[in-house]
Computed example of a mutant assay.
Amino acid sequence: MSQSRFLLPEPVGKLLSLLPVYPGSLLFATGLNIALKGDLPPDVQQSLNGKKLRISVTDAKLSFDFKWENGRFAACGKDGEPDLTIGASAHDFLLLARRQEDPDTLFFSRRLSMEGDTELGLLVKNTLDAIELPVFELGKLAPARVLGRIKPGGRGQG
């Protein structure tokens, strides 16, 4: 099965690329802080301290820049090169978040990329593997009354 079938259409990526970087990075860093809730061991926190990371959603042409400082993740501007960039399609990131795909499988099939400090990349991967995170479920992000109005096929009731 071709993976291009699961990529966002090019016009959608072009439109999303016009969004300002910082608000998305702020939301992403806030989400990380909520999801991890102090689960990062002290040695990992020390290794991450001051390191700039970038998550690049390749088909959406979006990136989220953040770093670890003062005991939490904080958004960064896009200025300067990150220490580590992790890139994949939106679909592949969703598969990772839902634990339906293994990062090693995606990496070796060239659907997940890491650029920069590979030692830092391994630290991030191993840390996430070791933390018991709940499986990401899209349905939990919206109130039931909103989702109840959405029919399969994407059309609402009204």
Rank of each mutant, 00 (worst) to 15 (best):
148 G>N: 06
59 D>E: 14
66 F>E: 11
118 T>Y: 14
114 M>H: 13
97 A>L: 13
6 F>N: 06
129 D>A: 14
157 Q>N: 04
123 L>Q: 04
95 L>G: 02
44 V>W: 01
158 G>E: 06
25 S>F: 01
132 E>W: 08
63 S>H: 15
155 R>S: 12
142 A>G: 04
9 P>D: 07
102 D>Y: 12
75 A>H: 03
53 L>M: 07
68 W>M: 06
12 V>F: 04
149 R>I: 07
101 E>D: 08
47 S>V: 13
94 L>T: 12
3 Q>I: 02
148 G>W: 01
85 T>R: 03
53 L>G: 00
11 P>T: 06
65 D>K: 00
90 A>G: 13
27 L>I: 00
55 I>Y: 02
20 P>I: 07
20 P>K: 12
101 E>R: 15
84 L>T: 13
125 K>L: 02
156 G>D: 04
42 P>Y: 13
139 G>Q: 11
33 N>M: 09
18 L>N: 06
53 L>P: 00
77 G>V: 13
16 L>A: 06
4 S>C: 00
83 D>E: 12
104 D>Y: 15
62 L>I: 14
27 L>F: 04
45 Q>Y: 03
103 P>I: 14
127 T>Q: 07
144 A>V: 03
98 R>Y: 00
155 R>I: 14
131 I>K: 05
91 H>M: 11
19 L>T: 10
107 F>P: 08
139 G>P: 01
150 I>Y: 02
149 R>D: 08
64 F>Q: 15
61 K>R: 15
27 L>K: 01
158 G>K: 06
136 F>P: 07
146 V>A: 03
21 V>R: 09
20 P>T: 12
153 G>F: 08
69 E>G: 10
3 Q>S: 04
76 C>I: 11
32 L>Y: 00
93 F>Y: 05
133 L>Y: 00
8 L>I: 00
57 V>R: 10
103 P>L: 14
122 L>H: 08
35 A>F: 06
112 L>H: 05
143 P>H: 05
3 Q>H: 10
104 D>R: 14
41 P>W: 08
73 F>I: 13
49 N>C: 12
147 L>A: 01
33 N>I: 13
103 P>D: 12
